[in-house]
Design a binder for these strands. Structure first.
Length: 268
DNA sequence: CTCTATGTTTAATT
DNA sequence: GAATTAAACATAGA
């Protein structure tokens, strides 16, 4: 589920459910999810408070309460926020519950996460993980010269650099794979070897993937990201652009799909 | 049974 | 210091 587009959708939903609502009861007991934190601190920090806003940077969500308290949520690999009728029974993989009342109507917002790689952090100020994020392509915007300045100083493979959250926030494995495919750049190319035109193509490709992944029509389909995913997970299938069989390699410990024919390797 | 997975952190190694 | 690699976390699905 969760890369930038998924987390952005989660933010919009949380905002709809929580903005302006008052928290009547909050529960979370899992010490893996609450990292750092405690069930007691979670409940006391939230209960009775009003939700002012829900923000996102990269793959992190920030629920801002009226008194300045922040609830940070990272979805890990399998985390998801859902709305349930007030009083619904607890699901098996449910690890947090925020019961609220909004315009007199009660509802319940639940955090589900079977693998429990996700996190919830409550605090009075922003956490380092949030502060250390690089620019978010949607929140902060992204220009080719900004990205070029960051990539220029690195010799790592461009895909690894793109996925570095302190360099650019929100790019996960799928986004990196799809963006590089659209920009026709071999993911192994050293980041610093890209030309200015390459970086321009990368920025345009990234925005294209993001726009398509967030298109309302794409979101209505059961298929996540709509038609934005063209080559991820399709090793062996013909490249949708040139027909050559898609290759799979390991880069930075992550499986990487790419087309060895039309994604050219940059060298310096 | 085996293999793989949209993420991050840590340790060990080059 | 920079960069790479492997492993760990925990569970579900193919």
């Amino acid at each position: 589920m969760p890369e930038l587009p998924d987390v952005e959708i989660a933010r919009r939903q949380l905002s709809r459910w929580l903005r302006g609502a008052t928290i009547t009861q909050a529960r979370s007991t899992d010490r893996r999810i609450l990292r750092p934190g405690s069930p007691e601190a979670f409940a006391t920090a939230l209960e009775g408070r009003t939700v002012r806003d829900v923000e996102r940077r990269g793959k992190w969500l920030k629920i801002l309460l009226a008194d300045g308290t922040r609830v940070f949520s990272h979805l890990g690999m399998t985390g998801a926020w859902v709305e349930r009728p007030a009083g619904s029974r607890e699901a098996r993989s449910e690890h947090a519950r925020i019961d609220v009342e909004r315009r007199g109507r009660p509802t319940s917002v639940r955090y589900l996460d079977p693998r429990r790689f996700g996190r919830l952090v409550v605090g009075a100020k922003d956490i380092p993980e949030w502060l250390e994020l690089g620019p978010d392509p949607l929140v902060d915007g992204l220009r080719a010269d900004t990205l070029a300045a960051m990539l220029d100083r690195s010799r790592r493979p461009v895909k690894v650099a793109l996925m570095d959250q302190t360099m650019l926030a929100g790019i996960g494995n799928i986004l990196a794979i799809e963006t590089l495919w659209r920009a026709r750049i071999d993911p192994r190319s050293p980041a610093g070897a890209l030309s200015r035109a390459d970086v321009g193509a990368l920025v345009r490709a990234l925005h294209t993937v993001l726009r398509r992944a967030l298109a309302p029509r794409a979101r209505q389909a059961s298929d996540e990201w709509g038609g934005a995913i063209r080559i991820y997970g399709r090793r062996g299938s013909p490249c949708p652009r040139c027909g050559a069989p898609l290759k799979r390699i390991l880069l930075g410990g992550r499986t990487t799909t790419f087309c060895a024919r039309c994604q050219r390797l940059r060298k310096r």
